[in-house]
């Protein structure tokens, strides 16, 4: 995570109004030669400066460790998670995290981040258009503690947010549309016969890890089972109908159905583009990301 070391601070409208109020209070004190009014005016001035110092301190030594966006469905609400690290010796409050690439005015608030600790915040965001957004910058801002100063810092990041086509369509999942390459299910539900090991991939179910082998010092391996009656699906764009978006949404629906029914599947997006057969969260994400990419290209071209 790259961060801009600079912290920017400016008085906001409330700060400017407070500044003018201080001047008015000093004039009032002078007009009536009233030391108590002067005292309140100086208190306000001290509070103003304290507010500036504390506002600056509220973002001090605060880092973004990681940010993750879950795949979001078109016209639905997406979700994400951010990991912040507070390295300072003070608690931080009301940190606004702004991600303009999601939406210009999009932000969420991390209400409290304890000193010398990490804090994790789940957030939701409006997911509108199909596509892949490359998130390059995150801004953290704060007006804590008195709302008079707006302080912010910019972080350069590399992350992406994927919005895939909505899973909808009238067509039922075509049963064994095409028998493709031999694919052995990892789920172990179709058959009980152990076939072989393969390397653990992110998204694989931990229940299928061969823990005994792992305990003996071998790398994390996943057991494969074979009963010869696997259901393999090639979800082909050509087998859908309607306009382009409708067809992508149908594919999205099939992907979800295959995943729910624990089938192995692959998507074919034309003659040249076909993803390998697979299943699991990672595979699902890859498929939906492809659909998102295609949807974005289509939207751009039309």
């Amino acid at each position: 995570m790259m961060k801009d070391k600079k912290t920017y601070i400016i008085p906001n409208w409330y700060g400017l109004i407070f500044g003018v109020s201080i001047l008015a209070a000093i004039l009032l004190g002078a007009t009536y030669s009233n030391n108590l009014v002067f005292a309140v005016a100086f208190f306000m001035l001290a509070l103003f400066l304290l507010g500036m110092v504390q506002a600056n301190a509220n973002l001090k030594d605060l880092d973004i460790e990681k940010i993750h966006f879950s795949l979001a469905e078109e016209n639905a609400t997406g979700s994400g998670r951010i990991w912040l690290k507070n390295n300072s010796n003070e608690d931080h409050y009301q940190i606004m995290v702004k991600i303009p690439e999601i939406k210009e005015d999009f932000f969420f608030t991390v209400s409290h981040c304890e000193k010398k600790s990490s804090c994790i915040e789940n957030f939701t965001f409006p997911s509108l258009e199909i596509g892949i957004k490359n998130i390059k910058q995150i801004k953290i801002a704060s007006v804590f503690p008195f709302g008079m100063f707006y302080v912010w810092r910019n972080f350069s990041i590399t992350s992406k947010q994927v919005t895939y086509p909505k899973a909808e369509g009238d067509l039922a999942l075509p049963k064994n549309l095409e028998l493709g390459e031999s694919y052995i299910s990892d789920f172990g539900l179709q058959g009980e016969d152990f076939s072989e090991h393969r390397k653990f991939l992110p998204g694989d179910n931990f229940r299928h890890v061969d823990w005994k082998a792992y305990a003996k010092g071998r790398p994390m391996l996943v057991k494969k089972f074979d009963d010869g009656e696997t259901s393999n699906f090639i979800l082909d764009l050509q087998h859908t109908s309607g306009d382009w978006m409708k067809r992508l949404r149908q594919l999205s629906k099939w992907v979800h159905e295959c995943e729910a029914q624990k089938h192995a599947y692959s998507i074919r997006l034309g003659q040249e583009k076909q993803l390998s057969m697979g299943h699991g969260q990672l595979h699902k994400m890859q498929c939906l990301e492809q659909l998102a990419k295609l949807g974005e290209e289509y939207a751009r071209s039309s």
Binding site: Y93, Q94, T109, H112, V143, F144, P145, G147
Partner: peptide, 8 residues
């Protein structure tokens, strides 16, 4: 003033 900005 402080509590207002500290949140809920």
């Amino acid at each position: 003033l402080f509590q207002l900005h500290k949140g809920k």
